[in-house]
Structures are given as structure tokens and as C-alpha cells.
């Protein structure tokens, strides 16, 4: 009987071991700062649903109470990546912080037509929306790691759009409250950022015309989206919608571009 019990225990342990997918041997630990709020859902979901891990990147989330404190930690080299409010982030860029925006996140939209017409309220909500950024300094995550992170955020968006109940149950605390409506978009969307930049009057005299564009790394998003479309199929409606919106210069010609081969599983 004891022997049988031992076998059952061993079998159970083996099953558990198989169920927990090990991270690839080369996984780097990325310190990711974020706010504990609904706008951060893509980042939090990618962590809770092990999508970062599935993409081959080990993420250590670090919670912050405010974007200002998170951006300060990013500037001090205590974080590799951050997910903070777009308004604060753009102001930090204008001040000279060496950061680059790599993805979008969630922003509140009232859902009420009347409120949407109220420009100042809409703008304020936009500025509170989340963007994901990386520090630009020696030892910061390389392009490949950033690609994996952004790929995970797109997959988190797919999960959120296609299986909202499952997705929100894994980050129940961040689920939007009654009456509040959130939009999620992993696209860094340079043109949206440029509008906010302009509205906040952040373009100082003497700044290069490309100052903001130099701090938006949308090539990472375009590559990740392109690779996912090839991997997940052209027909995925969420990816299709993201591709319709993205402004990505297309590849041409018989390119020798390297494709990722370690994409992990699909959603």
C-alpha cells in the first residue's frame, strides 16, 4: 500500500514538473516597474499568465505607487523596463531622460459620448494611459529581449480580447470597476504620442525635429507584430486589427532578415 502511495506521489510530482514549463536556459531577468492599476493590465497579464516566460524572457515585476517614482527608478538604473503614465513619460523624455517607448498599454475611456466630447477630460485620461519603455544605457535589455517583451504584450492583448473572462480572472484585482471602460493597445503609436507631446508643449526650441521619434522604438513593435502574424496566421482578427492600425514600413525584396525561431507556444 505504502509502495503504491509512493508511486502515486512520484507520478503526481512528475506531472507537476511537466506542467510547469521551464524557462529557457538563457532567460535574462528583466526588472519591470509598473503601477498596480487597470491600465497596466497587459504587463500584469503577461506576467500572471506566464506569457513573458513563454516568450523566453524572465520578468521580475516591481510595483510602484506613482509614475514619477517609477520613472526615477528607471533613470537611476534600478529598472530595465517600465510601464508608466504617458504624460509623465513624455515629460521625462523632454527633460532628457534616456528612455525609449517600446509599446502601448491601457487607457481609460469613459464610454460616454458626452464625456468623449469633453476635450480636457479626454486629454487627461489619455495622459494617464500607460506606455511601456526601456532605459537606454549600457547593460539595458537588447533588441531581441525587447522584441520578446513586446511580443508577450501583444499576446496578452490577444488573450484579453479573445478570452476576457479568463484573462481578467488571472489579474482580478486590476479588473475595471463598474462604469469604467478601458481600451488596450500594445502599439506605441508614434502619432498618438506626437499629439500628446504637442498638446503638452514639450518641443523646446533647439530640440531636433525628430526628438520625440528618437525616443519611440516602434521598429520593435512592428517586428514583433510581423513575426506573430506569420506565426499565428493571417486570419487572427485581433492581430489583423492591430496590423491595420500600425504604420510599419514594409519589407521588400527577397530579404535575408532573420526571423525568431524561439517563439514558444501560441495563445
Amino acid at each position: 500500500m505504502r509502495r503504491l502511495f509512493s508511486y502515486v506521489v512520484l507520478a503526481a510530482l512528475a506531472l507537476i514538473a511537466l506542467a510547469v514549463k521551464p524557462a529557457p536556459a538563457h532567460a535574462e531577468v528583466v526588472r519591470l516597474g509598473c503601477l498596480d492599476e487597470t491600465g497596466s493590465a497587459l504587463v500584469l497579464l503577461a506576467d500572471a499568465a506566464a506569457i513573458f516566460r513563454e516568450e523566453g524572457v524572465e520578468v521580475k515585476p516591481v510595483r510602484f505607487n506613482s509614475s514619477a517614482s517609477g520613472l526615477a527608478a528607471l533613470a537611476a538604473g534600478k529598472l530595465d523596463v517600465g510601464a508608466f503614465a504617458v504624460g509623465e513619460t513624455l515629460k521625462a523624455i523632454a527633460r532628457g531622460d534616456r528612455i525609449r517607448i517600446i509599446a502601448g498599454g491601457g487607457s481609460e475611456s469613459s464610454g460616454s459620448l458626452l464625456d468623449e466630447v469633453d476635450a480636457s477630460a479626454r486629454q487627461e485620461r489619455e495622459e494617464r494611459g500607460i506606455v511601456v519603455m526601456t532605459a537606454e544605457r549600457p547593460g539595458a535589455p537588447d533588441k531581441e529581449t525587447l522584441g520578446k517583451l513586446v511580443s508577450a504584450l501583444i499576446k496578452a492583448d490577444l488573450l484579453l480580447q479573445s478570452q476576457p473572462v479568463r484573462a481578467w480572472s488571472s489579474i482580478a484585482r486590476q479588473r475595471p470597476g463598474r462604469g469604467s471602460d478601458f481600451r488596450f493597445d500594445p502599439d506605441p503609436d508614434y502619432w498618438r504620442l506626437a499629439s500628446i507631446w504637442k498638446r503638452l508643449d514639450l518641443q523646446a526650441p533647439g530640440m531636433a525635429r525628430s526628438f520625440l521619434a528618437d525616443h519611440v522604438y516602434d521598429e520593435i513593435y512592428c517586428d514583433a507584430l510581423h513575426d506573430l502574424r506569420e506565426g499565428e496566421g493571417e486570419s487572427n482578427p485581433v492581430l489583423k486589427k492591430l496590423a491595420e492600425k500600425a504604420v510599419c514600413p514594409p519589407d521588400c525584396c527577397p530579404t535575408g532578415k532573420k526571423k525568431r525561431t524561439d517563439k514558444g507556444g501560441s495563445q
Binding site: 521598429e219 512592428c222 517586428d223 514600413p249 519589407d251 530579404t255 532578415k257
Partner: peptide, 8 residues
């Protein structure tokens, strides 16, 4: 390999 890489 791609236009984006070349432009960068």
C-alpha cells in the same frame, strides 16, 4: 535585410 533596418 529590410527597409526599416536600413533606415535605422
Amino acid at each position: 535585410g529590410s527597409a526599416a533596418e536600413g533606415m535605422a
